[in-house]
């Protein structure tokens, strides 16, 4: 078998801020996010920036009962991909379908660095 671990992370954080990194397969040009975990049988893929942000397709706030509430959403990017993630809205602001969003730094519950979506400045209700 020929299995290669895809070497790139799914985001980049630099002076320009957070950028999600999808993957583009070299043979087909197909895009995907998240990037593949592994490449099979000689597949090759390279990271591709997802763009500065997207539009909120839908969202919800989850109320787990004993744990704090958290918000989730689906964000459409200009490259045609849809990305699921946590929403990080300012206190008191409500998301709305169609909001322009940007990518911000976040962490998974286990502390692993990750991403979330926040309203573009001036776009929060």
């Amino acid at each position: 078998m020929e299995i290669t671990k895809y070497p790139q992370a799914h985001f980049r954080k630099d002076a320009d801020g957070m950028t999600l990194l999808g993957a583009r397969y070299r043979d087909t040009g197909a895009l995907r996010f998240p990037p593949p975990e592994f490449l099979q049988a000689g597949e090759a893929a390279e990271p591709i920036a997802m763009g500065a942000g997207g539009r909120l397709y839908t969202f919800t706030t989850v109320y787990p009962g004993k744990a704090p509430a958290y918000a989730l959403g689906m964000v459409d990017f200009d490259n045609g991909l849809r990305v699921f993630g946590r929403l990080a809205w300012p206190e008191g602001a409500e998301p709305a379908i169609g909001d322009a969003v940007c990518v911000v730094a976040s962490t998974l519950p286990d502390g692993t660095p990750d991403y979330a979506f926040a309203p573009l400045k001036g776009d929060a209700a």
Partner: peptide, 18 residues
């Protein structure tokens, strides 16, 4: 998705919202 907090009620809530 599940690592980022998705549970089945949330998936259907997002469908409902849309």
């Amino acid at each position: 998705n599940n690592r980022r907090g998705l549970v089945m009620p949330a998936l259907y809530a997002m469908r409902a919202k849309r």
